[in-house]
Design a protein around this nucleic acid. Structure first.
Lengths: 311, 311
DNA sequence: ATATGCCATATCTTATGGATATGGAGCTCC
DNA sequence: GGAGCTCCATATCCATAAGATATGGCATAT
């Protein structure tokens, strides 16, 4: 015979009632089968758990020892079932989320994470930073649940790319640069694409994350403009550090204009330059994880009505 | 449906095999019933534990969470069963032992306790000191397993009193006392009962433990000797303290002659005085506890061939 | 397209948990 | 001290559900 939880439940009932008949009533079964189950348990353990006397059943000393252990195990299974119930509801679990460096720079990202943590404290967030390509791949491979990234670098089937916002792209230039002299507002405020001709340009072109800068270079090529690429860096932050140091100019999503505000000037691009930095939420369309649904819903409702121009 | 350990065992097998058919083989059942049991478990929990695909079954994220918990519970039941197996063998458990003050004074008591602890480290010894009457009663009431005492003060049915040894009783007198002047050996070494006439006598007559001193007084009365009882104390130790202080004389089991050796003289009683201090081990004849048996055996074998003359 | 491996479903069998009926042992209460 | 009561054990029967067998469907690999 294998021991089952039933035996423990029955044992506990008898131990607590001190009485076979009464325990049977409490368990909604009859007395004889209960008697048998208890005996089977004693047999299995090789120990007498009860002493039978005329007015009930009393635990033996071995029974007392067993009682502690049985209680522990039953408690532990009860806790487990409750936990799994919360898992079923989706309010407990793990959620793996990744973002690209530049997606993390947008205030939206930390904001929704904080909101989510508050609303679903039992969902453990596993956060990581990665390239757009790797994020996309790992979501498809079920290795991640959600990702935040800018320009998609591939669209594997089954993945949803939900554009949360599109923010303008700004030109970043050292304060003493020619382009930095442009007025903040007014007719000539915007930077034209031809202004890039022969300029020292810094690119963020981390492997697998061409995104925004590929688009920029494509636009330039289209119009016959040939900027002078002086550096290709991995991170948006390095990019702005180089700009601040006077190494060249670059373009960045508007949400980064707080960075190096004292040493870098940010200027809008001309209307005709269709270059913008979207923020996309990526997830598997068929993701059955409730937590993923909650997260997507939260992000969606947080950004609802937000056209992305702000922040 | 109620969850049973079977479900956990089956789940674990499938999770570890990653394969329903292979897990079924390992469990010595067929694949379809296993399939059903797993499904029943998933149903019960309200969560999909596996993703089925063409080459096996892979844990879902909920399944991973459940795996940890299921392992924990199965481990814990395995540990429990092992522990109960040791309980069944008797090598694990609790043993409640009590002794009277004067029984504890005999070296045998600590010696067997030390031996027992060494041989059965998983049996927790619960030691206490008490009067002979209370020890007897509590053993009968299954409140204690064994007791060490001197002269039984009652013999409830079902209790075994095993006399481990009988040791002589010595007269204890202050060094400057008349009786202390008797030679240690030789013709006149022994103290006669008539020497007690009009002597200041100290008794240990703790409530419920008349034992030795009741016998002494009975002997005196029988022979028409009337000692002068100057004190009745509760403990053998107090007794000897008073003797050392010169308050009177007393009699004690021979095993106590190390106490106050510098200030108290110990002298043998005459052969004709049939007064001796036995050391008895008490236990219930019907005690089914293996540990009790082990203890009785150990004590018996330790005292085998020991006629009690030695201490 | 075919074949193969794997899981799900359907049906049947069987083992066992549970119900019913009865017996025996120990108290209690006259 | 005996009658009756309470409570647990035993014996037999029934019902449920675990398990076996047979088959079908789906996906991947060849």
């Amino acid at each position: 015979m294998d021991m089952e939880l039933r035996h423990l439940r029955y044992f506990l009932a008898v131990a607590e009632a001190g009485h076979l008949t009464r325990a049977a009533a409490r368990l909604n079964i009859q007395q004889p089968p209960l008697s048998q189950q208890i005996k089977a348990l004693e047999n299995h353990l090789g120990v007498a758990l009860f002493r039978r006397h005329a007015k009930g059943m009393a635990l033996t000393e071995s029974g007392e020892l067993f009682l502690e252990e049985a209680r522990r195990i039953l408690d532990s299974t009860a806790v487990m079932e409750q936990r799994m119930a919360r898992v079923a509801q989706g309010v407990r679990g793990r959620l793996a989320i990744a973002f690209t460096t530049s997606a993390a720079a947008h205030l939206l990202t930390p904001r929704v994470l904080r909101l989510f943590r508050g609303r679903y404290p039992e969902i453990e967030l596993s956060l990581s930073e990665n390239s757009a390509a790797e994020i996309t791949e790992r979501i498809a491979a079920r290795d991640l649940h959600c990702g935040f990234l800018r320009v998609p670098v591939g669209r594997p089937p089954g993945l949803v790319f939900r554009t949360l916002l599109k923010e303008p792209v700004l030109v970043a230039a050292p304060l003493d640069h020619r382009l930095a002299q442009k007025p903040r507002t007014g007719k000539n405020a915007a930077v034209a694409l031809k202004d890039f001709q022969d300029e020292n340009l810094i690119l963020v072109r981390r492997a697998g994350a061409p995104g925004l800068y590929a688009n920029l270079l494509a636009l330039c090529a289209e119009r016959g403009i040939c900027p002078n690429v002086v550096a290709e860096v991995e991170r948006m932050m390095t990019n702005l550090n180089l700009v601040a140091a006077g190494a060249g100019i670059s373009v960045v999503p508007a949400s980064m204009q707080q960075v190096h505000a004292k040493t870098v000037a940010y200027r809008p691009l001309g209307k005709s330059i269709h270059l913008n930095a979207p923020l996309n939420l990526v997830y598997r369309a068929a993701d059955e994880t409730a937590a993923t649904g909650f997260f997507v819903d939260l992000v969606t409702s947080t950004t609802a009505g937000d056209d992305g121009a702000r922040s």
